[in-house]
Write a protein that binds this DNA or RNA. Structure first.
Length: 824
DNA sequence: ACGCCCTGCTTACC
DNA sequence: ACTGGTAAGCAGGGCGT
């Protein structure tokens, strides 16, 4: 017997005659590759007997189950009596062990005939997941195995059979990462199958500084990183060799699940090459996932498509620390995260360059740079992925692909062990369908009165929804008909829900713990900021913030529309209470959305705001807290374009450091040309920074004339819209769909997710008939850009200041006269 | 052909 | 198909005149 300390990296199971065996690939503390077989785990599920059942009789009956199916003997290995909690209620349960995961389904069918059985639980959880949960093992965190070394033909240094247990929460430092990127001979081609253009370059970047671009047309170069092989077959074989000899802990790519791997697979199939790069020498597998995407699994080496993680978890509007980019291209993500860009060249020129073997070197460097950027983005977001791995305790391969809902669900599943709770079932197809029709009312949005305001304060509730869950004990396990001893929710369509306060619920306890941990971490960050702590705070935040959405999600195991509805009802209650208290105090509320109020300080001062904050917080339940978001010098709220009322979710503010904060306006929306965004930005600057409306007006008139008279940069005229469906599924053919059709005709690949770029050109008819691909557009329609891009983006702003649309178009002489009259 | 209203669709905010 | 609801606003679709 020996003991070896290691970090688990990838987990699956293998099948032997005697049953499944959990297999863990990892790295020892001395840096060796290790594979551990843990036989201690047996696939299992729970049987819940009807009340008043003779338990030992039922137990014996279950233990004896053995039948034949498909010429194989299916049998129960063992069963034991146990006590569990089902949503807080104590229940008797029989834990049933079998040899193979796939036997569970058959035995479950068999058990359905036994009338003493009330229900069967925990049968729909994959074995490695259950293994990690039951044994409280967190991947990437230090574990130990006690066992015996055995011989192996696997690509590892040590092969051990034994029992694994968690040691500490020290995480794997400096993993060896290999990033890759491919180029094909015709980057624009959408051809699939045997005629698919060949792969001509593979760029590789390793975390220890390793750099290589392999290609198969020789040319003169001094770059040592460029390696020549003689054919595409040799290229793919060399790619495999490098992976084998480099021995990366992870393989990362950018959109590699969506493009690089499927492409490599297609070419490898065509060229009859096995992609047997798993540490067990098995070929890579394509796991079907939601939609028409799949993800690539390499046994023993997590493959991480960072595009997926960035898009799903790091994207946009969730946290201040996260990405603001509107496009998930490698270039814009690299710019945002690293402050660095791709090598600038037109990749469409590659097909000519390849054909004529002319100027290929720069494409190789471009290819290599892409791989390098991908690697460095991965290194930058590693703390974020690691923190989520630590929280949900699932393999990095899985966590890097999880959506919010899955992160929360996996976290809840992990926490069941501490509470002895039964893991609830996934809803059936029918249930999901039925649940989808259930909706509930969301947050309250206060309609602003359009205007330019001075001296504002913005207050918001810290983590409103999680703090409500905790403060009012909202949970599937506490919801009750008992009106005594319970919290009563505000009325929802005439109904009030009740949540017992006798015992703290499963979810409220978990949420409370998350909130408290985050408060502690934020305290530490104040004194000592670090990327790891920031990532931890972010991870705790997104998990805590996701619960109310999760319980209202039709696919959730812990689904409860009542809980979600109640959380939101409380949220409306608190924000409305806040608004009325603010007004009682003598302030004017300008705006508010869900958990915030925008206050005009007016003839009072900042200290009054702080006093109000203190008073209000004194009356809030524990863990609920109203915070000062910031003071602002000036702010503008506009009216809707189609009606006289104030527009919600749109405002522009400037704080005391002259920083402008813009929400909802065209500037922050994709789908608007740069020309209109740039003009709008300038207008806000003149109005908010300089408080000079006349300057803004003059600027707009000048710009409008330039658009009319000059040929401005075509790049500024480009409109970008995302395609979200297959082209043929559109009922309504908008400009971007029409342009996507043009692209398909030219054999340029487009599909759901593609960002379609176009310019509206002169001509007659519908806009879609005049929308052209950027490369095909030789002019732009000035009228369109003035009336459909510029004016709409600034009109409502100027209306607030007393100007009409016509005022914006007048030439300068008239306008001076008019403003003279106006001011006089 | 034009104006009107409705709907499909995209993209924001929290 | 993968957390939820709330909201603005464009362009096309379809209708009547």
């Amino acid at each position: 017997m020996i003991e070896i300390k290691f970090f688990p990296i990838d987990i699956d199971y293998i099948e032997r005659e005697e049953g499944i065996i959990i297999r863990i690939f990892g790295k020892t503390i001395t840096g060796e590759k290790i594979c551990v077989l843990d036989k201690s785990f047996k696939p299992n599920f729970l049987v819940i007997p009807e009340d008043n059942t003779n338990l030992s009789e039922l137990l014996n009956q279950i233990k004896k189950i053995s039948f034949e199916f498909d010429e194989k003997i299916i049998q129960v290995l063992d069963a034991e009596l146990t006590k569990k909690k089902y949503l807080g209620k104590k229940v008797n349960a029989i834990k049933v062990f079998v040899r193979f995961t796939k036997e569970i389904k058959l035995i479950r069918e068999y058990l359905k005939a036994i009338k003493e059985i009330k229900s069967i639980e925990e049968y729909d959880i994959s074995s490695y997941k259950k293994y990690l949960i039951e044994n409280k093992i967190t991947p990437l965190s230090l574990c130990k195995v006690n066992g015996n070394i055995i011989n192996t033909s696997l690509d590892v240094d040590i092969y051990v059979k034994g029992k694994v247990s968690q040691e500490t929460d020290d995480i794997l430092e400096n993993p060896k990462v290999l990033s890759f990127d491919i180029e094909t001979s015709n980057p624009a081609s959408s051809v699939q199958g045997d005629n698919q253009p060949p792969i001509i370059m593979i760029g590789l970047a390793g975390s220890d500084g390793f750099r290589k671009c392999i290609t198969w047309k020789e040319f003169k170069t001094s770059k040592k990183e460029i390696e020549f092989v003689s054919s595409e077959v040799k290229l793919l074989k060399e790619f495999k060799n490098i992976i084998k000899s480099y021995k990366p802990d992870y393989i990362v790519g950018y959109y590699s699940d969506g493009f690089d791997w499927p492409y490599i697979k297609a070419r490898a199939d065509f060229l009859k090459i096995d992609l047997d790069i798993g540490l067990d020498k098995k070929v890579i597998k394509f796991k079907r996932r939601a939609g028409n995407t799949s993800s690539v699994k390499i046994n023993g080496i997590p493959h991480i498509d960072i595009w997926k993680f960035i898009k799903q978890i790091m994207s946009g509007d969730v946290a201040s620390g996260s990405l603001q980019t509107q496009s998930y291209s490698l270039d814009s993500v690299a710019e945002e995260i690293l402050g660095e860009n791709k090598i600038s060249l037109d990749i469409l020129d590659l097909s000519d360059a390849w054909e004529n073997n002319k100027g290929l070197e720069k494409f190789c460097l471009y290819n290599l740079k892409d791989a390098e950027l991908c690697l460095r983005i991965f290194e930058k977001i590693t703390p974020n992925i690691n923190e989520l791995v630590k929280i949900v305790s699932q393999p990095i391969y899985d966590v890097s692909k999880m959506t919010y809902g899955q992160l929360i669900e996996n976290y809840l599943m992990k926490k069941t062990v501490d509470f002895n709770e039964i893991i609830l079932k996934k809803p059936s197809f029918g249930e999901r369908k039925a649940r989808r029709y259930n909706t509930y009312t969301g947050g309250f949005v206060f309609e602003p009165k359009p205007g330019l305001y001075e001296n504002l304060a913005v207050l918001d509730f810290r983590g409103l929804h999680p703090s409500i869950i905790s403060a009012h004990n909202i949970c599937l396990s506490t919801i009750t008909d008992d009106k005594e001893n319970s919290n009563e929710s505000p009325e929802i369509d005439g109904i009030k829900f009740h949540f017992s306060y006798k015992e703290e619920g499963f979810i409220p306890q978990i949420v409370k713990e998350l909130i408290e941990r985050r408060i502690r971490i934020k305290e530490i960050i104040k004194k000592n900021e670090s990327p790891v702590l920031k990532a931890r705070s972010y991870a705790l935040k997104i998990i805590a913030a996701g619960f109310h959405g999760y319980t209202g999600y039709f696919g959730a195991r812990w689904y409860s529309i009542e809980c979600s509805a109640a959380i939101l009802a409380y949220a409306r209650f608190y924000i409305k209470k806040l608004i009325s208290k603010v007004e009682e105090f003598g302030f004017t509320v300008i705006y508010g959305d869900t958990d915030s109020v925008f206050i005009e300080i007016g003839n009072k001062n900042k200290d009054d705001i702080l006093k109000f904050l203190k008073d209000f917080n004194n009356e809030l339940p524990s863990l609920m807290e109203l915070e000062l978001e910031s003071f602002y010098e000036r702010g503008i709220f506009v009216g809707k374009k189609s009606a006289k009322t104030g527009a919600k979710k749109k405002y522009a503010l400037i704080n005391e450091n002259k920083e402008i904060k813009i929400r909802g306006f065209e500037i922050v929306r994709r789908g608007w040309s740069n020309i209109s965004k740039n003009i709008q930005r300038k207008v806000f600057e003149f109005i908010l920074k300089e408080n000079n409306v006349q300057k803004a007006l003059d600027y707009v008139r000048k710009e409008v004339n330039e658009i009319k008279n000059k040929k401005l940069n075509m790049e500024d005229m480009v409109i970008r819209t995302q395609l979200n469906k297959n082209i043929n599924d559109y009922e309504s053919i908008g400009p971007h769909v029409a342009v996507a059709k043009q692209m398909l005709k030219k054999n340029i690949k487009v599909g759901p997710g593609s960002i379609i770029q176009y310019i509206v050109t002169k001509g007659t008819g519908l806009i879609r008939d005049r929308a052209k691909l950027v490369e095909d557009a030789t002019d732009y329609d000035a009228d369109y850009y003035i009336n459909h891009q510029i004016l709409p983006s600034i009109q409502t702003i100027f209306e607030v200041l007393g100007y009409k649309k016509e005022d914006l178009l007048e030439d300068e002489d008239q306008s001076k006269l008019k403003s003279f009259v106006k001011n006089g």
